Simulated scan of single mutants.
Amino acid sequence: MLKRLQANTLCIREMATQNPFYVLIFSKTSGYRHDSIPAGIASLQQLAGQTSRFTVTASEDASAFTPDSLSKYRVIVLLQTIGNIFSQDQLDALKHFVRAGGGVVAIHGAAAGIANDAWYGKLIGAHFAQHPPHERGTVLVEEANQDHFIMNCCGGRKGWMDEWYNFHSHPRENGNLNILLRGDPRSFEGGKHGDDHPLGWCQEFEGGRVFFTALGHFEDAYRDGWFVGQIGRGILWAARQEDMS
């Protein structure tokens, strides 16, 4: 596991810059709260220190979501942000951030945030519906996007333990999404999307960039280089820092 973490970190470090950008990790919840949130924050703090590409601030203070306060960040990470996490003014500040070119990385439970807001659903790509009991399964890379920057240094993964999310609408129906990862429905029970079960994607959205992964329920994910490497490259891609040559 440690060797995978080192290999994926190296893929980021090779593109190091002298001017790190600022990332906000936001993990407010309303309702169910993932035990893995502290591990997720610690993992991104460690990744920031190892790569020197960005610096991170962790917060659950939604009152700080104003256009002025968000303007210093290049990327906002929505880490397990379940429930009604924003007032309308705070959500409007997030819209302003995205429309000004800001990046968003949304992880796992973020798909269960603000369930009744259509804009937030489009930002994430699809609203979470439910999941079957967690079990090990196989994650497949979308062949057409296997060379995408976020998937660089990655392949698929067998035996991955997670909650295999189902969504209210099939993500493939959202033509704005570039699907990156799919679950193999033959490897787990309870999938509702047939033979094509998207679990990770990215999109250009209203001037900004968004990367979402439905993986990441358990603490172990945030100590795994395969997963953390995708999050790290997702941050760089959302910040438009994937090509520093």
Rank of each mutant, 00 (worst) to 15 (best):
G103K: 13
S245W: 08
V228M: 01
I41M: 02
S43Q: 05
R240W: 07
P133E: 04
C153V: 13
H168E: 10
R4Y: 06
G229T: 12
L5Q: 07
E135I: 14
L2Y: 05
Q80E: 09
H96F: 02
I235M: 08
P171I: 11
D162M: 01
C153N: 11
K158Y: 00
W201A: 15
I12C: 01
I12M: 11
G113F: 05
P133M: 04
V23N: 10
K158E: 03
P133A: 10
N84I: 06
N152C: 06
L181R: 07
H193M: 15
G83S: 04
P132R: 03
R136G: 02
A7Q: 01
A126L: 08
G159T: 07
N152V: 07
M1Q: 13
L10K: 14
Q146V: 05
L91I: 04
I25H: 06
I41Y: 06
H197T: 06
I114H: 03
V105P: 01
H134Y: 14
L199F: 03
W164V: 07
S27D: 00
L91H: 01
I37H: 02
P171A: 02
N174V: 10
R233I: 15
A48H: 12
D162C: 06
G113D: 02
Q130R: 03
Y73R: 15
G155F: 04
L215W: 12
F149Q: 13
L236I: 15
I231P: 06
S87N: 04
T81Y: 00
A118Y: 02
E219Q: 03
F205V: 03
F211V: 09
F167T: 02
E60D: 14
F167N: 05
K192F: 02
L94V: 11
W160M: 05
G159L: 12
Q146A: 07
D61V: 01
H108T: 09
H108L: 05
V98W: 04
